[in-house]
């Protein structure tokens, strides 16, 4: 049971042993009918575009310009361009920093600390702070971007806390600020996952540890954290995926700047396509994103399967 609590994304195990069906194993007309809407919409508006994007990634299509109407297949030209594109490498690096720093580590750690500390907190404080964390997570991305732009502006509270009204947090530490904003918006979800998992830590083990004279730090390191390990892995992966897709936050806060400091791949792909009008190259960058998310997804599924 406890395993199920920390393993999202794996198909729910059937309650009874072995697959149970109402019919014999053959495709029925009813199934076709029920599957038809999804079977048409998903390929037409999701899978086909992804495949079409693969093709467009090898063309010189432009949004506006010489090749907006008459574009052609350009073979490896876009790939060669990408491999010698310094902005692309910088974007990869920034993406890695953002996704790992803010997603895998930042949000997970923040959620973990929240969940653990909440256990010992005064009820009123507990209600208020967990409520705030969840509220932060429910806000739409555009609102999150707005409140963080305000907070990190030169006249905003972060600059005031740095006791330097001339400080300019969003521009001086752009990646740090967008990472904080992203973690701020995701920690509520991680907290919920960890709170749930913490409830399943066997109390007798902790009591036994206390009786044996283990300090609270020792109990944390030896009992609680090892018990939370699967949740930590799950949370880290989920946060990574969610952070990777978090285009809106960065685009609205910094549009990838200043000096490309926050130019993560999804933002770079959008800017190439819709600011510099190179739709073909933009599609290629999108394909790179698909490859990465497929890799991440595989790790996710692999961990889910292997834990069964």
């Amino acid at each position: 049971m406890t395993e199920a609590t920390v393993m999202p994304l794996k198909p729910a195990p059937s309650r009874r042993s072995g697959p149970r069906r109402l019919d014999r194993p053959r495709l029925k007309l009813a199934s076709l009918f029920l599957l038809a809407p999804a079977g048409i919409l998903l390929p037409a508006l999701f899978i086909l575009p992804v495949c079409y994007a693969i093709y467009l990634g090898f063309t010189n299509l432009q949004l506006v310009g010489l090749h907006s109407v008459h574009y052609r297949f350009t073979g490896w030209a876009n790939i060669a361009f990408m491999l010698s594109d310094a902005s692309f490498y910088q974007s990869l690096w920034v993406t890695a920093l953002f996704v790992v720093g803010s997603g895998a580590v930042g949000s997970t750690l923040l959620g973990l600390v929240l969940a653990i500390a909440l256990q010992q907190a005064m009820p009123a404080l507990r209600m208020a702070v967990s409520g705030l964390a969840i509220l932060a997570w429910t806000l739409p991305p555009t609102t999150i971007a707005l409140v963080w732009i305000a907070s990190a502006s030169p006249s905003g509270p972060i600059a005031a806390m740095m006791a330097d009204m001339k400080a300019d947090p969003l521009y001086d530490h752009a990646l740090l600020i967008v990472s904080a904003a992203n973690a701020w918006s995701l920690a509520g979800l991680a907290m919920i996952m960890f709170s749930a998992a913490l409830r399943n830590v066997p109390k007798d083990m902790i009591e036994a540890g206390t009786l044996e004279g283990a300090s609270s730090v020792q109990r944390m390191m030896r009992i609680t954290l090892p018990f939370l390990k699967p949740t930590i892995v799950t949370s880290a992966l989920l946060m990574t995926l969610l952070t990777f897709g978090n285009f809106t936050l960065i685009y609205l806060m910094t549009a990838g700047g200043p000096d490309n400091a926050t130019n993560i791949l999804p933002v770079y792909s959008y800017l190439e396509g819709f600011k510099f009008f190179n739709l073909g190259y933009s599609a290629l960058l999108g394909n790179i994103i698909v490859i990465f998310s497929a890799l991440l997804g595989s790790v996710f599924v692999f961990l889910g399967q292997s834990r069964r």
Binding site: L42, L45, F46, I47, L48, P49, V50, Y52, A53, L56, L61, L241, F244, G245, F247, P266, S269, Y270, G273, F274, L279, S282, A283, G286, N287, I289, V290, S293, A294, L296, G297, F300
Partner: peptide, 16 residues
């Protein structure tokens, strides 16, 4: 598919 960032759809969807 549920893990694919939506950003990758904009170029092909826009064209279509």
């Amino acid at each position: 598919l549920s893990g694919v960032p939506i950003t990758v759809l904009i170029v092909p969807m826009y064209e279509m």
